[in-house]
């Protein structure tokens, strides 16, 4: 039976979470190509924006500053995600079974694991078969949750998990956020574009997004959901997760990235160093 490395649930600040994930991704080749799954939460409310997003156009920075929401640019693509109570995962792996060079297939493999995990708490999620692939036509607002893409997860037609990837040198990092709770108003306040219709944006998000605690009768938090998601990966892929910690080299790389990149306003504001 194949084993994956598992870094167990903990909460970190937004900058630290992104620095650690990028460090795990950059050093994937040093771990004998064994994939790493990390489950984590957020010490304080954080907005992560996609690698290519322009926060001046797509994020209400004043609202974030006045409400103590830190803003950090992810290494991965996609749109903005407001993190508070959600369970976030990252997978760092090389291409090769069960993953391929094909991006949609990779999303599909991971989504099936998440479907299995959510089933364990009574949530029947499905994988979007024909979601939107083309962003060139433009999507209103900057929230990841506004639009389901192919192979992402829906529950009763509403999105429950948003995901995005970074690829380089035959390896990938996939981030995903499983919503435990969802507040369409705060998401709309943060991600409505200049001149955007706030009322319409709240309505769209309310209709198109759900959360774990909207779907289950007993309140769950991210840490309580984490073991079920682990079981979902193990069962769907026939693997075993082995608990581990970041190595000293990964910690050193995380600290370098934290100081040089993720705490650097130039990266977070402009997407460059």
């Amino acid at each position: 039976m194949d084993t994956w490395r598992f870094i167990s649930y903990r909460t970190l600040g937004g900058f630290e979470n992104m620095a650690l994930d990028e460090a795990l991704f950059r050093m994937t080749h040093n771990r004998g190509k064994r994939p790493t799954l990390r489950l984590f939460g957020w010490e304080c409310p954080t907005l992560t924006i996609g690698h290519f997003q322009d926060p001046k156009r797509e994020v209400n920075r004043e609202f974030c500053e006045s409400h103590g929401i830190s803003v950090v640019r992810r290494p991965t693509g996609g749109k903005a995600v407001y993190h508070s109570t959600d369970l976030t995962y990252s997978i760092s792996a090389c291409q090769g079974p069960p993953f391929s060079a094909d991006i949609l297939t990779t999303y599909e493999v991971i989504s099936k694991c998440l479907v299995r995990g959510l089933e364990k708490v009574g949530i029947k999620a499905g994988v979007v078969e024909e979601g939107r692939r083309n962003l060139r036509a433009g999507v209103q607002g900057g929230s990841c949750f506004a639009t389901p893409f192919r192979n992402e997860l829906l529950v009763r037609g509403a999105k429950i998990c948003g995901s995005a990837q970074l690829r380089s040198h035959g390896r990938f990092l996939q981030h995903g956020s499983i919503l435990m709770d969802f507040d369409p108003v705060i998401t709309a306040r943060i991600t409505v574009g200049p001149g955007g219709d706030m009322v319409q944006w709240v309505r769209l998000l309310s209709e198109s997004v759900t959360s774990v605690n909207r779907e289950v009768p007993m309140a769950l938090d991210a840490e309580a959901l984490a073991p079920f998601i682990c079981e979902g990966f193990e069962e769907a892929l026939g693997i075993r997760l082995e608990s581990d910690e970041p190595t000293p080299r990964e910690e050193a790389e995380k600290n370098r990235l934290l100081n040089e990149k993720y705490r650097n306003p130039r990266w977070n504001d402009e997407g460059r160093l």
Binding site: T76, G77, N134, Q165, R167, S168, H169
Partner: peptide, 13 residues
């Protein structure tokens, strides 16, 4: 450089 598709960023090497 970097290219972006709908859900992915790919580094150009």
């Amino acid at each position: 450089g970097v290219v972006e598709s709908a859900k992915t960023t790919m580094e150009l090497i």
